[in-house]
Design a protein around this nucleic acid. Structure first.
Lengths: 222, 222
DNA sequence: GCAAAAGTGTTTGAGGTACACCCATGC
DNA sequence: GCATGGGTGTACCTCAAACACTTTTGC
C-alpha cells in the first residue's frame, strides 16, 4: 500500500455531478446507489476523488462515466462545497458540476463502486448521502437561471426536435406553463434554431416541423 | 516537523481573494507582493492554504486579513481553479472568492508572508503570479454581472453616499457612462435606498442629498 | 456673475404578456 | 366527423433609452 506524506494536512478533493435530463415528460436527475461506506446503500450524486494530475472538469466527466456509464455532453462548474464535517471520513472538499444530456444519449449502466444508477424525477427524490440534496438543489437553481439567458435548453434535446418539445423543456425546468405563440416569438428572436425540412408525426394531429440548432457551437461535444 | 500521511495522493487546497474597492475615482483591486517562493517578489492575489478544519469562506476571510490587514465586508465564492501545473510546487486547487469593501474601511497593511499590500487600478495591473490574472478577470466579470441584478453596488460605498457616487460605481465597474435621469429612475424603482436628511457639500455647486441603504441586509457585516 | 454639479419629465421604441381561431392528421 | 396537438397575429403595457433646462452653491 502506497503512502503519501505532506508537511501540513491536506483535505481530500472530490467532484460530484448533477446531471439532468428529460425523460417521460419529466425532469430527472441521475443518481447512484453507493456500494461502499459511508452511506453504503444510500443514493448519491455520481462523483469521486480527483486524480492528482487530472483537471477538475475531466475528473467530473470521468467519474460520471465510470459510475453510471454516461458520457456527459454539456458540463459546467457549479459551486464548491467544503463545510468541515460534510464527510464523516476526513475533510473532503467537493467541486460540483452541472451536466446536461438529451435522454436519447443516456442509458445508465452502474459500474465502478456504484450498486445502481438510476434517473429520479425531481418530484420524487430519495434521501441523499452527504450534502448532496443541497448540491442537487443548487444545480436545479443554476439550470433555471441559465435557461433564461442562453440556449442551454438545446442540451436537453435530441439533434432534431419540435417547437413543442423545446417549449416543454422550459416548462419542466421552470415549473411553469408558457404561451405557445409568445414562446415561438421569443425563440424566433433568439435566432438559434432552423427547420430541418423534416416533420414528426406523433398521433392523430397535424405533424410538427422539426428544428435543429443553427450554430453547432450551441450543442458542443455532440 | 509534523507529517501527514494518506493512502492516496491529496492535492493542496488554497483560497484566493479578488477584492475590489473604489478609490480616487477608480476601480481598484487589492494585491500583495509575495514574500516567498514561488514567485517571490511578484504581485498576487491575497490567499493561502485552507485550514483542515476551517470552512472555505472563513479561510478566504482569514487569509485576506492576515496578508493585508483588511477585514472583508461582502464576500462570495467565485470559481474553483485547479488546472494541473498552475502551481509549480505541487497540485494546488484554489477556491477563488470575490470580495467588496468601501474604500473608507480599507487600509492595506502588509503582514504574514506578504512583503507589501497595495491597491492597483484595473487599468494598470502588474504581472501576476500563478494564474491570478485570469482569476482577477473572472472576478471583474462576475462583479459586472451582479451589478445589473442586485444591490451589490452598495457594498462599495460608505454608509451615506450621494446619488452621483452610486452612479459612479456603476460607471467605473461597467466601464460606461450612464444618464443621470434614467439612473435615478432605475434606482428609485429598486426601492433600496432612502435619504438620510443630510447633505454633502463638495465644491462650488448645489449640495447633494445623502442616501443610505433601506435594508441593512443589503450591507451585511457592516 | 460665473462655473460647476444637483436635480427634475416626457417622448419613443422594443420587448413581454394576454388572448382565439383554423389546420392537418389518425382513427 | 371528431378529437388532438400544430401553427399563426394583434392589442396592450411595461421598461429602457434619448434628451435639456433650472437650481444651488463657492468663489
Amino acid at each position: 500500500m502506497m503512502a503519501y506524506t505532506y508537511d501540513h494536512p491536506h483535505p481530500a478533493v472530490t467532484v460530484d455531478v448533477v446531471l439532468f435530463t428529460i425523460r417521460d415528460d419529466d425532469l430527472k436527475a441521475l443518481l447512484i446507489q453507493r456500494g461502499q461506506e459511508p452511506f453504503e446503500g444510500s443514493w448519491a450524486l455520481p462523483g469521486g476523488f480527483v486524480g492528482i494530475g487530472e483537471s477538475l472538469r475531466r475528473a467530473a466527466w470521468r467519474e460520471l462515466r465510470e459510475e453510471t456509464g454516461v458520457h456527459a455532453g454539456y458540463i459546467e462548474q457549479l459551486h464548491t462545497f467544503g463545510r468541515p464535517g460534510r464527510d464523516p471520513r476526513e475533510r473532503v472538499i467537493t467541486v460540483a458540476y452541472l451536466a446536461l444530456l438529451p435522454s436519447d444519449r443516456l442509458e445508465p449502466a452502474p459500474a465502478s463502486d456504484a450498486k445502481a444508477a438510476k434517473l429520479f424525477s425531481l418530484k420524487n427524490l430519495p434521501d441523499l448521502a452527504f450534502d448532496h440534496a443541497n448540491i442537487l438543489r443548487r444545480g436545479h437553481e443554476r439550470l433555471k437561471e441559465k435557461l433564461d439567458d442562453s440556449v442551454i435548453a438545446l442540451q436537453l434535446l435530441p439533434v432534431a426536435f419540435t417547437h413543442s418539445e423545446l417549449r416543454r423543456v422550459y416548462e419542466l425546468v421552470l415549473g411553469v406553463t408558457l404561451d405557445k405563440r409568445n414562446f415561438r416569438k421569443k425563440i424566433s428572436a433568439l435566432d438559434v434554431i432552423e427547420a430541418t425540412g423534416e416533420e414528426k408525426r406523433a398521433g392523430p394531429h397535424r405533424p410538427a416541423k422539426l428544428y435543429r440548432a443553427k450554430n453547432p457551437h450551441d450543442v458542443p461535444f455532440r
